[in-house]
Design a protein around this nucleic acid. Structure first.
Lengths: 193, 193
DNA sequence: AAAGAACTTGAATAAACGTTCAAAAAATAT
DNA sequence: ATATTTTTTGAACGTTTATTCAAGTTCTTT
């Protein structure tokens, strides 16, 4: 028996960034060997093929995002304040990225929609799970009396998710901080008041 | 002297649909010769290269969309009613597409962001022009007293554009009519009331 | 130490890619 | 009709692609 030499998380994060940077189809195996430091044989041994590496990277992405969200929402603030913090984080992410670093999930689902139904299904599930965890926060806000009792947490999470999708795409073409911040504030107001 | 045999608009619309369907990188020249009916040599003679064909197709897309918008907004209805009609049209488009037929401009800008700055710039300009024509409609609505005099048409058009981007991405993962219609209605309400 | 199992290495493979080009065809001009 | 010009044709080109595999290396077990 012998363990792999490479750090799996590190490899997946490198692959993840390569895919986010160039997109799935334009990221060649040569790019991936360069980014991960692994030779082709090692990649195929560990992940099967290029698609397998994408799916593993997507899984890592989901795990990273989940723990990041958990951090934000573990605060003792009111729920709506935490939602505002989360939204501010999204805006900062749109701004901070030197490049147009959109969400790996939406980027991949847009690119691979017609190309690979299996990948599309997996990505849709992840995005739905993300929407679901936002929905739980709205439920908590309603339970805590921060939102009216007759609010619809499903609809609110759908609308917020739609807004975040839109914000990310908007940032691609007009990444001015003032504009994005103003849009996010209005989005928050339209959802949480 | 001799004129080209093919119908330029028809060729460009075919190429446009091929690019929207598979994305730029995954649409091979073989796909494009099949879609357009042109042989490689003819494509290179008429458009220079694959990127040239994309840009010509994008130009055709913009022209088609512009005249489509002109049709909607040439109606004699109140401006806000026309905006609602336009938004309903977007939703119908999200639903009707057998496939996930997103906007060619946003699809291409997401895919080619890092790959080709020139294409990105051209696409950004087109999207900005689209936003601008929506802004003019908001200005008209304000002038007609359909919106408060102190409304900010720039911000309203930004927010509506963001919402439409989001709606299209959302439709990729959850294309249920009720959901999209409800989201669009709330978006309209948040912008126009 | 020796044997065995697992991982690493990187050159090789076949297929697909965007692009070119010389020959054939067709339309206009003379 | 003939000459001239332009487009069409489609095979061929050199790259690049994802993937494979046999040989080499390294770790663990005995």
């Amino acid at each position: 028996m012998r363990n792999a030499e490479f750090d799996r998380q590190q490899v997946l994060r490198s692959a993840m960034h390569a895919f986010m940077h160039k997109g799935y189809n334009k990221t060649s195996m040569q790019d991936l060997t360069a980014a991960t430091g692994l030779h082709p044989g090692s990649i195929y041994c560990a992940f099967g093929n290029k698609k397998g590496l994408l799916l593993a990277a997507v899984e890592q992405y989901r795990a990273d995002r989940t723990s990041q969200m958990a951090t934000v929402f573990s605060s003792k603030k009111p729920v709506l304040a935490k939602l505002k913090d989360y939204l501010d984080g999204v805006v900062q992410e749109c701004l901070s990225c030197n490049t147009s670093q959109s969400c790996l999930l939406t980027k991949a689902i847009t690119e691979l929609a017609e190309q690979d139904p299996e990948v599309q299904h997996i990505l849709s599930d992840h995005l739905k799970a993300w929407q679901n965890s936002l929905q739980h926060q709205f439920q908590a806000a309603i339970a805590d009396g921060e939102l009216p009792k007759d609010s619809d947490p499903v609809f609110l999470s759908e609308y917020l998710v739609m807004g975040i999708y839109g914000l990310r795409t908007f940032a691609h073409t007009q990444p001015q901080p003032e504009v994005l911040i103003r849009l996010a504030e209005r989005l928050y107001a339209n959802v949480c008041t």
